[in-house]
Write a protein that binds this DNA or RNA. Sequence first.
DNA 1: CTACTTTGATAGACAGTGTCTACAAGATGA
DNA 2: TCATCTTGTAGACACTGTCTATCAAAGTAG
Lengths: 189, 189
Amino acid sequence: MSARQRLIRTAADLLVGSGVEAVTLRGIAKAAGVSHGAPLRHFSGRAELLSAVATLGFTQLLQRGAQLPDGTPRERVTAACHAYVDFAVTNPAMFELMFRRDLIDPEEPGLVSASSAVFDTFAELVRLDRAEADDDRLRPGTDPRLVAASLWGALHGLAQLWLWGGLAGASFAPSPESALAVTLDAYLG
Amino acid sequence: MSARQRLIRTAADLLVGSGVEAVTLRGIAKAAGVSHGAPLRHFSGRAELLSAVATLGFTQLLQRGAQLPDGTPRERVTAACHAYVDFAVTNPAMFELMFRRDLIDPEEPGLVSASSAVFDTFAELVRLDRAEADDDRLRPGTDPRLVAASLWGALHGLAQLWLWGGLAGASFAPSPESALAVTLDAYLG
DNA sequence: CTACTTTGATAGACAGTGTCTACAAGATGA
DNA sequence: TCATCTTGTAGACACTGTCTATCAAAGTAG
């Protein structure tokens, strides 16, 4: 394994183990057993290293999408939505990093293509579902990619708010699953 | 105006003017014309100061909610949703700070009460709408607060993804308004 | 085999950060 | 007047990311 790959792996382990605050260039170097300046031989800076880690996160998310059980398009979309929220809840640190514009380089080609692949896969599931379903809850003719963007946003916000601790009013603390059920009900009926 | 208030104001100005990266304790002190250690006389640390700024943000958001035009409950909910996304898009730095768990203290009482007030206000709008509407797109009997949480998540994710630059597939870049229209269509029909 | 280049790693430095502590000046109150 | 409290200052400390000089090892061309 190349030194570059080893650094990415070390950083990812540190991320899931100790949270996004712990993923410092020097901390990664120490965990990898190299000097504090060594990572800069393989990455232009912290943002590039963390972008590679985030790309790994999107790849893992895409793999979850590829492992969805067979079934009707409706079942597959539903499963994908559950998988997205589940990924966020079970990998909070990775999920946070993946959307932290200040820590990564949003223009990084690998990152862009990995996140686009996630969106495209999801949008295709939505397209198939809408092509088949006849009970059209949304305005007919709506671009499936627009529906996918809206639905992705809904899932994303649900996960983000729950991680933030903000799905709760003072006396009301719904689980992400129950809120997700409502979301799916709204979009898919 | 107390020194504490002046620091909060200075920090808020710095935030909207130069982004969340610029809101450093020393930068705030310099902008306020005091020494670098002075803010610690009024706040226990950076998190407490930034929590006060974020609380200001939630208060501003709540004021937007209070200025909604009169109309049917449906119109009011719709307007509130537009207002939320519009707030995020027009105040990206403040919006980002308000949900950055690493920069603020999520337990801070003022912050909790301000964000809860936003949620409660929104939930009440949703409750009124659902009490009146007869075309129930969602499962009847669903707790309005759960609907509010789900819908808030949808708005939040939409805003967050758009700010992240991720409402776009490579060849598909919807505006937040068009995606919001689909979201409102899904929830409100 | 020998020179040269390339690559990877190291250690030191620098500015910037949050936070802590010692200190000073001024107001307040007994 | 004297003591105390408040507010602000300046310096230090341990971090951070990044830059640079140095160095060792490993090819590689002659």
